[in-house]
């Protein structure tokens, strides 16, 4: 949970996104408002197509809102990616012609920082994500889960204050997915980054988050906010607790199919 008086790092005010299409404008998300404090892990939960990626892309500066505003660290994001964020996608999106280490350096190269200054950090991150021996491997020599961990290390190399994650584990098998959730929690326990996490899995959202924001189906709007008071660090057996089941149950009732 955010400490009392913690600073606000993210704010969305009455934001809507409309896509033009041949059959007229499509409203992807409408009138979203939310905020996030430093150190928080917030999940956005909703059925596919409800506009989760759209919201995240606006925050990442990859597209513009049609109305309303999104701000990061007190400054409006207006289609310009902020340097103090990291991003993890559903597919790892590694460059197959670069080694794992070179892939991790992409944000460093992109921001014209010196690789040498971040070499130790890169190796520390590889260790943190459980791939200390894979720096010189190429992405196609790694499994999907390992690739996704490289993507995670890449998103953290420049020590961003906030990491945006768009269903990072959705493409993984169920076993790997659970293990990755536990690992992500351990990694964040050490690195203290704030995370905005997008998922359509209720248990995943509850397990990882301090707060879960539930979105309605298209056009997406926030319909419920659930605080998760479970103590950290959480082990997988936390999922078997009555409190966990009760929280999941509350969210499941809201899930419109």
């Amino acid at each position: 949970m955010a400490a009392a008086g913690a600073s606000e790092i993210l704010r969305v005010d009455d934001m809507s996104v409309v896509y033009p299409s041949s059959r007229g404008p499509i409203s992807a998300v409408s009138n979203l408002s939310m905020s996030m404090n430093a150190g928080e892990f917030v999940s956005i939960l909703g059925p596919s197509g409800c506009g989760k990626s759209t919201l995240l892309n606006v925050l990442a500066g990859l597209q513009k809102a049609s109305s309303g505003q999104a701000s990061l660290f007190g400054k409006p994001v207006d289609g310009q990616p902020h340097r103090n964020i990291g991003i993890v996608f559903q597919q790892a999106r590694l460059l197959p012609w670069l080694t794992v280490l070179e892939n991790i350096f992409i944000p460093i190269d992109a921001m014209r920082l010196k690789r040498a200054d971040y070499l130790d950090r890169a190796h520390a991150l590889l260790k943190l994500v459980g791939l200390p021996k894979f720096a010189k491997h190429y992405p196609d020599e790694l499994s999907g889960g390992m690739q996704q961990r490289v993507g995670l290390a890449r998103s953290m190399i420049h020590d961003p204050k906030l990491i945006l994650m768009d269903e990072p584990f959705a493409a993984l098998d169920a076993m790997t997915r659970e293990r990755m959730s536990v690992e992500l929690q351990e990694i964040l326990g050490k690195s203290k980054q704030s995370v905005l996490f997008i998922t359509h899995s209720i248990p995943e959202a509850v397990f990882l988050s301090d707060r879960v924001l539930m979105m309605s189906s298209s056009p997406g709007r926030f319909i419920e906010e659930v605080h998760v008071p479970l103590k950290r660090p959480r082990a997988l057996d936390a999922m078997a607790s009555g409190e966990f089941a009760e929280l999941c149950g509350r969210l499941r009732k809201l899930y419109k199919h």
Binding site: A60, G61, L62, P81, R83, I87, F89, Q91, R93, L95, L98, I106, P107, D109, A110, M111, R112
Partner: peptide
């Protein structure tokens, strides 16, 4: 385009995206 989007999200300048991707 997913790779180009990734480069943009990390604020990569055009020349880097061109030569690296």
């Amino acid at each position: 385009p997913a790779l180009l989007n990734m480069m943009r999200a990390f604020s990569a300048p055009t020349w880097l995206t061109f030569f690296r991707v």
